[in-house]
């Protein structure tokens, strides 16, 4: 009970966004929304009204997805004793824009969704957290993992909603989140995958196949519970395979 009260207090104090974070989030959301609505500005000819409508829809989808992803990391960070700060990644955003323009809608869904990464700040006044006395790689990996996990939960929620009410917007949101989750799990700094990978290779070997397999099963309309169980099994099998074939030979213990 005391931990819950402590978490509630931490959320109240540290969850809010700084002005730089807000600026970065706004830029990221608009750039990514533009990328995912790039080929929706008219069918045969350019249509401004249709384009703006699709851009608005895309902004809603992207904002929801990025905020859910970020919320997972912020909440887990606070539980672990860190304040998470969102940082936009201009190189990634500009590369994604260049790719969108160069592709020009020729290859559908070639969306490079790389809004940014995060930085951790140690909550010195709350040193009784799980990871005490400093920031460590594994703690960072766990915080990074919370983002794709929340995105996966959002995909499941959207899939359940789409069973009762099918709409283009929900379908697009599911597609967007699937691509967002897979890209964010790639081990490219500053994406979440890189933090998980450098935090713990074993964790990465489990998480990557399990989450991708779960997403594929959910997208192809497999039952949600079965998808999660099967993906867990796939994750364990590949984790063991990785351990036996590689990690067992190179692991020399903590230094």
């Amino acid at each position: 009970m005391g931990e819950l009260v402590d978490l509630q207090d931490k959320i109240k104090r540290y969850y809010k966004f700084t002005p730089y974070e807000l600026k970065g989030l706004l830029v990221s959301i608009f750039v990514i929304a533009f990328i995912i609505s790039f080929d929706e500005w008219g069918t045969a000819n350019f249509n401004l009204g249709m384009g703006l409508y699709n851009l608005f829809n895309s902004v809603l989808i992207v904002a929801l997805s990025i905020l859910v992803h970020d919320a997972g990391q912020r909440l887990f960070g606070l539980i672990a004793g860190y304040r998470v700060e969102f940082k936009m990644w201009l190189f990634g955003l500009l590369s994604a824009l260049i790719a969108a323009f160069a592709n020009n809608g020729r290859i559908p869904y070639l969306w490079i969704i790389v809004p940014g990464g995060f930085m951790l700040h140690h909550l010195a006044g709350h040193r009784l957290g799980w990871f005490r006395y400093g920031i460590n790689y594994f703690g960072q990996a766990m915080v990074a993992l919370a983002g794709p996990l929340f995105t996966l939960m959002l995909i499941i929620l959207l899939k359940v909603i789409s069973i009762f009410n099918t709409s283009f917007l929900i379908e697009k949101a599911i597609r967007f989140n699937v691509i967002y989750m897979i890209i964010s799990l790639l081990p490219i700094p500053p994406l979440d995958g890189s933090k998980i990978y450098f935090g713990s290779r074993m964790l990465y070997a489990f998480v990557l196949p399990a989450m991708i397999f779960a997403t594929i099963l959910i997208v192809v309309n497999a039952p949600v519970f079965l998808s999660l169980i099967l993906s867990l099994l796939v994750g364990i099998v590949l984790w063991l395979t990785y351990y036996i074939s590689f990690e067992r030979k190179v692991w020399t213990g903590p230094k």
């Binding site: 600026k23 970065g24 830029v27 940082k87 936009m88 990644w89 201009l90 940014g116 700094p189 500053p190």
Partner: peptide
């Protein structure tokens, strides 16, 4: 300092 981001 209008924009701030991470390099990696």
């Amino acid at each position: 300092k209008i924009l701030r981001d991470v390099r990696f």
